[in-house]
Each structure stands twice: as structure tokens, then as C-alpha cells.
Design a protein around this nucleic acid. Structure first.
Lengths: 332, 332
DNA sequence: TTCCCCTATGGTATCGATTACATATTGGTA
DNA sequence: TACCAATATGTAATCGATACCATAGGGGAA
């Protein structure tokens, strides 16, 4: 691969002058500049980031840790972050930890050796010890969709507790009293908090879930199973802690011959694209996924730039989106 | 950040010895090795990849170009590729081109300056000129889900034409004769080929689509619109060139009061997770998405390693998955 | 005893880019 | 005419890690 020397030779000048052309610094005559640019164009030369970083430049690299991007929520989140970061001049390592601590540790080691400027962690892993080395090196960490218990410089998190409350309250307001909850994955902080919110809102009305099924794997199939179990308790309404869980429930209910929403109301959380495109259309609490991603990117950028202004701009509010899966319970 | 010199000083030795410990090369006494390792542990030291690459090592970086990972299909594909590559010792830049040529060119320049060892391109962009510089530098390129017209060293592509045929044939076999087709995005090679396959199969039975709606944006909402238009022609069956298109169609049909599959049969393509979890469950032609990703990763690895063995192992066959959205047309 | 090889360790050039510094050529002004 | 500032270009140190080469002690073979 061509180096700055190659270009210098081609343009019959020194590496210093080539560097000046590359960076638009110092004095370069129009003549020389033209020759250098010609050489660059001719060889498709691109200066090595490695050399630049080594010399003391910023790496413009950031690490993004999340459980896996084949899940809609994280796919959208990752996409939003990557785009925002790219526009800010960064390149991202999007890493799927598969919720394995060993995996996560390997990625962190990689971040260190690649000298990333910062890290965004949206992983669902509960433990955060792997982040200690990053912290020790003063590498800023922004947590998204979860806290990091002291390791993160900042956290972009919606109020999951409130989210849980909103779901429960909507059902309560419709008149439901026999309510079940399902969701996954168990170890996800967000899930736990939403669940806590659900319980709190129910308790406030003197209720508690007639069934609570929290699974380890977060996909349609497991959600279907969880829902089947929960429906055995004959709730009039079911809360899915994620849209995936809620959609799994739609199927379980359908297979049991229950009509939605006449026999069973269902509410989800997230508002992933599929939520509006299942039948019946899913009522859900929408969280601003892309906004979350962009916020995290900008926050990290500010931290990397050393901007002291740490004030958190507010995230858009959670909103209840009423579609076709919730209704008052049918009179007994 | 600590460097090899820091470690050498801490362990009271030379950088050469530290390097020997790091790489398990040459001679190092047990004593010294222990001291060095202690210093490394103490500082959380990780050798700089930049320096290693600069010195002449491999970068172990690969670029992955795709339209966007917030689309299920590409999210899953990207996930499979990233995991496989990570296991092979590579780190991936997953880049969403948003199907913009300018974007793509910027990413390619970045790949060059980062000295990636190879590139996997799954972008839907039709033009491939941006890849010329990569090619010029001898950087291997593997195309996934599309050809790259001479720029790629290899292409991992299923037989989209066959896929199109399978969809059409299934409907023909059921007795349908009035068949519409919708899909997006228009400029995607895969879409074009599937469409060609559909037309070919129909033609073989003396038929042609009663409506053909190909849109630019690939999401549920636009698919809904395309379907609404296509259904105006009163087909008894509709082919969605992707599952997204098919699912959009389910909704459009539903809103028109059509029963599925009694009044309208629908078939999709891809078998994304949502396909099995819509109501009614979508009949579709499944392509081995994750397998595609893993294959591409391994192929690229072999190319980077300079393995001459270029034989392509076969991909799993496309399979028709019959669920609940297709049935014989009702007698007229 | 001498020589050589194995073990152990350190010094230093090198990769590609940036940049401080040195050098050289102008032109304008006192 | 002498001098300084602005312009233009080159030389070399530097970043972190690797690897080649040099140095040196110790043990076995001749």
C-alpha cells in the first residue's frame, strides 16, 4: 500500500510537504500542491489512521456493546447510534455480546488495544466489572437503556418504572382487575424496572399480577410459551414487558381461541415496527428508540471532546399508543 | 495510556523483553516473565494495535457494508457475520450506507485509511464503482445477497430467480391464475431477480402478473400502500417479494375486508422471525440468512489468509414454508 | 583448556504520519 | 544597501511495538 513516502517520491518532494497538503497546514505553493494532489489521486492514497493515531491523534473510534443486533430494538438502536457517530466523525465497532460476560470482556480488551475514544454500552448483562479497565484508562462510557452502577460517565435511560406503570394503568383504567405479566430476558435491568413499575401501579389499585412469567430468552417462541402459561390463570388482560412478548401472546391467545380484545386485552412496550403490523394492531407504550441512540452518540461525543457541560437534555416522553388489542373487559 | 515503555520501566527491563513476553517469542527467564506480567496486570496494559499494524502486522479489521441494520433481514445478516468474524479474530465495521452512493464512498475511504483486510458488501446500491479503489489495493471483497459485477472476489448469493419461481409456482399449483406482485426496494438486485423469477414462472403457465407494484422504500407502511394498489386489480393471490411486503399486504387486505387465505392468498420471502408471528401466519420461502452471513465471513477469511482454495461450498436450499396465508382460490 | 551453542537480555532501526526546527528565497522598507 | 518578515521546502525526532543484531554468561564436547 502506498505511503506518504510513495507520494513524496511521485511528486518529487518531501514527506513534510505532502503532509502539509494533506492537512492544509503551513505553506505550500500552488504548484507543489497540484503535483502532490495528482500523485494522491493517481494512487488512491489514503493516509494511514494507524500512523496518525500512533503519532498522537485521536482514534475516532468508539465501541458499541449490545446484546445482539438481530433483535429489532437493538438493531434500530445500533443503527441510530452508528449513523449519528459517523456524522460526528467517528467509526463504530458494533459488538454483540450475546449477553456473555466472557464475550464482553474480550470486546473490552479489544477496545483498549484499538484505543477507542469512548464506549456506549447497551448490554443487558447485569455485572459491570468488565468496564473497570476502561474506567481506569479514563475512557468515557455512556450507558443506554440501563445503568452501569458507577462505571458509566452518563446514562441515557428512559423511565422504565414509569413505562411499567403506564401499561398497568391503562389496563386498570379500562376496568381490568385480573392482569398477568410476561417478559424477558430476566436479567435485563430494563425488564426488571418495568416489571417493578407494573407491580407498583397494580398495588396502588390494590391489585397484583395473577401470573408473572419472566423468561431467559427474548424471542417470539419463548414469549408464546410464557403467555400460554400465564393465560392458564384466565386473566382478562396481559402485559407484555416488550412488544415481542406481547406479540407472542397474541398468538398464544389466538391458539387458545381467545378473541382480542374482547376476551383478552394485550399491551406491549417499545413500539417496534412490527407492533403496528400485527393483527390485531398492538397497543403499546412507545419509547423513543432512535432518539435514545442519537442522544447517546452526542453525549459520548461531548465527553470525548472534554466538554464539561454534562447537563442531560430531556428525552421525549413515553407515549401510550392505543391500537386494537386493548378494551374494557367483557361484563361477567 | 500505558505503553510498552511504561511496562518495561515498571518491570525494570527493556522493551524488547516485554515484547518477548507479550508474544511468547524468544527467550525469557521465568523470573522476568513474572515481573513483566505483574506490571501488565497492574496497569491493565493492552498493546496498541495501531503500532502493531504500523509495524507491518495484519489489521484484523474488516468492513461490512449494508443498507441499514434496522431492517430485520440485514440485522440478522450483520449479526451472523460479525459473530463469525469475531470468532475468526477479526473486528468489524458495520456500516449502514442508507443506499447512498456518497455515504458508501465515504465508508470505502475510511476502510482504506483503516487498512481493513477485507470487505463484505451486502449493499443494495446498484453501482459498484466505489469499490474500484479497494480492488486496486488488492483488498478482497465478498459480495452477499448481490453480485458486484467484477469487483468482488466472490459472491455468496442465493438463487433469487429460483426463489421467485418457487413463490409463483406454489400459487399456481394451488390453482391461482390472477396473481399480483409487490416489493421493494426497486434498485435492489435481489428484488429484481426474484421478480424476474416470478414472471418467468408465471409465463411458463401462460400467465402474467395482474399488477406489479415495486416501490422505493422497504417498510411496512409503503408495502401497505403498494398492496392496496395491487389489490384494486382483484387478484386471488399476491406475491410479496419480501416478508415485509407480504405482511404489509396482510394488513391492506384485512382493511379491505378480505379474508386470508379464503379471499386472498399471500406468500412472502425471507422467513424473518415476524413471518411466523403474524396472524395469519405467513407462508413464505425461507432463505438461510445466518448461513449466508457465516459463509461470507469464512470466505473472506480464506481470501485474506491467501488460501487459494476458492471452491464455493453449497448453501442450504431455499425451502417453501407453508403456513396459513395460502390456499386454493375459492371457486368462482 | 578452548570453542561453540544455548539461554537471556538489551540496543536500535523500522513502519507512516506529524511537526518543530532549520534553511533558503523572496520582496518590501528603513 | 542592509535587514526583516513572509513564503516555501526539507531534515529529523517522535509515537508504540517488533525483530534483527549484539553482548554475555554457562555448560558440554573436543
Amino acid at each position: 500500500m502506498a505511503s506518504i513516502k510513495t507520494i513524496a517520491k511521485l511528486a518529487q518532494t518531501s514527506v513534510a510537504s505532502v503532509s502539509r497538503v494533506l492537512n492544509n497546514s503551513g505553506y505550500v505553493s500552488a504548484d507543489l500542491r497540484a503535483k502532490v494532489q495528482a500523485a494522491i489521486a493517481q494512487t488512491n492514497y489514503q493516509p494511514s489512521s494507524d500512523a496518525r493515531v500512533l503519532r498522537g491523534g485521536k482514534s475516532n473510534l468508539v465501541g458499541i456493546l449490545l446484546p445482539s443486533i438481530d433483535v429489532q430494538f437493538f438493531g434500530i438502536l445500533a443503527h441510530a447510534m452508528e449513523q449519528a457517530l459517523f456524522d460526528l466523525g467517528y467509526q463504530s465497532f458494533i459488538c454483540s455480546t450475546a449477553e456473555s460476560a466472557a464475550h464482553e470482556a474480550r470486546y473490552v480488551a479489544m477496545f483498549l488495544s484499538r484505543r477507542v475514544g469512548g464506549v456506549i454500552a447497551a448490554s443487558a448483562e447485569a455485572g459491570a466489572a468488565h468496564f473497570a479497565p476502561l474506567r481506569a484508562h479514563g475512557i468515557p462510557i455512556v450507558a443506554v437503556d440501563r445503568d452501569l452502577h458507577g462505571y458509566a460517565s452518563d446514562a441515557i435511560v428512559i423511565d422504565h418504572d414509569l413505562g411499567g406503570r403506564m401499561m398497568a394503568q391503562h389496563l386498570i383504567d379500562l376496568g381490568h382487575r385480573t392482569i398477568a405479566v410476561i417478559g424477558a430476558p430476566q436479567h435485563s435491568q430494563s425488564i426488571q424496572r418495568r416489571l417493578a413499575g407494573v407491580r407498583a401501579a397494580l398495588a396502588q389499585s390494590g391489585l397484583q399480577p395473577v401470573s408473572e412469567q419472566v423468561g431467559t430468552t427474548h424471542d417470539f417462541a419463548q414469549s408464546y410459551d410464557l403467555a400460554s402459561r400465564a393465560l392458564a390463570n384466565r386473566p382478562t388482560a396481559l402485559i407484555g414487558l416488550t412488544d415481542i412478548a406481547a406479540i407472542g401472546t397474541i398468538h398464544a391467545a389466538h391458539d387458545l381461541g381467545l378473541r382480542i380484545p374482547q376476551d383478552l386485552s394485550i399491551i406491549g412496550f417499545d413500539d417496534i415496527p412490527s407492533a403496528a403490523f400485527v393483527l390485531p394492531r398492538l397497543t403499546t407504550v412507545a419509547q423513543p428508540i432512535r432518539h435514545l441512540g442519537r442522544s447517546a452518540a452526542h453525549r459520548l461525543h461531548r465527553l470525548i471532546a472534554g466538554d464539561p457541560q454534562t447537563q442531560t437534555e430531556a428525552l421525549p416522553a413515553l407515549t401510550l399508543i392505543q391500537r386494537d388489542t386493548t378494551a374494557p373487559p367483557k361484563p361477567a
